[in-house]
Design a protein around this nucleic acid. Structure first.
Lengths: 163, 163
DNA sequence: TTGACTTACTTCACATGTAAACGTATGCTA
DNA sequence: TAGCATACGTTTACATGTGAAGTAAGTCAA
């Protein structure tokens, strides 16, 4: 009797764990393949690509703190990334005119040109990896992931202000 | 005419990119929350948890190379992880009787006890994060991710284009 | 104005990951 | 069986990530 019910009342957390493992696997596969491609074709890491993408979107430049928020990484991490991108000549940095603690970083022409090419190949690469998946299924998968994200139970750790 | 068709023939790679970004976002959120939980409750990183999970599954122990393969990380990484887990007293290490180049690592009783508790909380944590998602939707999402993984176009890296 | 926070960024110590160069042990082949 | 290629693990150099501590600059109450 209880044995039969296992089809109906699964172990709590069981399906969620499988879902997480499957998500990990898909993420790892795509992450590795995008990393390898960006690195071999453009000498870019995914982390650097993400910074360039932010700066491409915010053409007036961003302060390091904003970059840190948008990328959801710590300030210390952004500090290092920015230093390496400066050394690569892909971004420029100037003091903020309003706040002397603040720096504004922007794409250089070289950075912009590289990002345009890299973003194009990035997109085509994903298109290639998913070429066996129908447009309908892709749309469905996108909806499913959006739905999951929106329904994620908020962690009620420490209450803090939003934005 | 071409403008109207954009609903039917989207930019190649566009949907795939959105799907990737959504996947990244969900992965990042869950990864961060699992990491924080494991670290604060058990002093474990997700990387260490993954090693313990492998050793829990293979009770006869694993060689470092097998660990590296199963976890899909490099040997150098496993070397360091194993050293830290040894220092934590969570695993033990002995020479292989068959191959003197090889080491076999196993869970210690302490490691096993910690992993059992951590795995249980890990599962419950995921159950909690997904508590607003119906069992039907969870099943559906799992199917979708499995399908995507199985249909991922295999990379034909070093292979020449002419077959 | 002063003193106390707060904010912006850097730096440090460390964990985790990669790739490449080693040293040693195995195993195959000629 | 001698020698070479391969496999196993370690080490090194580096990138990327965190959290905490430190410095300088901005803000606000009294």
């Amino acid at each position: 009797m209880t044995a039969l019910k296992e089809n109906i009342v699964p172990v709590p957390g069981q399906i969620e764990t499988r879902l997480w493992l499957q998500l990990l696997s898909l993420h790892g596969e795509l992450f590795a393949s995008l990393s390898a491609m960006l690195n071999s074709e453009f000498g870019l890491s995914l982390a650097k690509f993400d910074v360039l993408a932010q700066l491409d979107r915010y053409r007036d430049g961003l302060a390091l703190g904003q970059l840190s928020q948008n990328l959801k990484v710590t300030g210390g991490n952004v500090s290092g990334l920015v230093q390496r991108l400066l050394a690569d000549g892909l971004i420029s940095r100037e003091m903020s005119s309003e706040d002397r603690r603040s720096f504004i970083v922007r794409l250089t022409p070289k950075g912009e040109a590289l990002f345009r090419k890299a973003a194009d190949v990035h997109k085509k690469h994903l298109g290639k990896r998913f070429e066996n998946v129908s447009a309908r299924e892709l749309d469905g998968a996108l909806s499913v992931l959006k739905s999951l994200s929106s329904k994620l139970h908020t962690e009620t750790k420490k209450q803090s202000r939003k934005r």
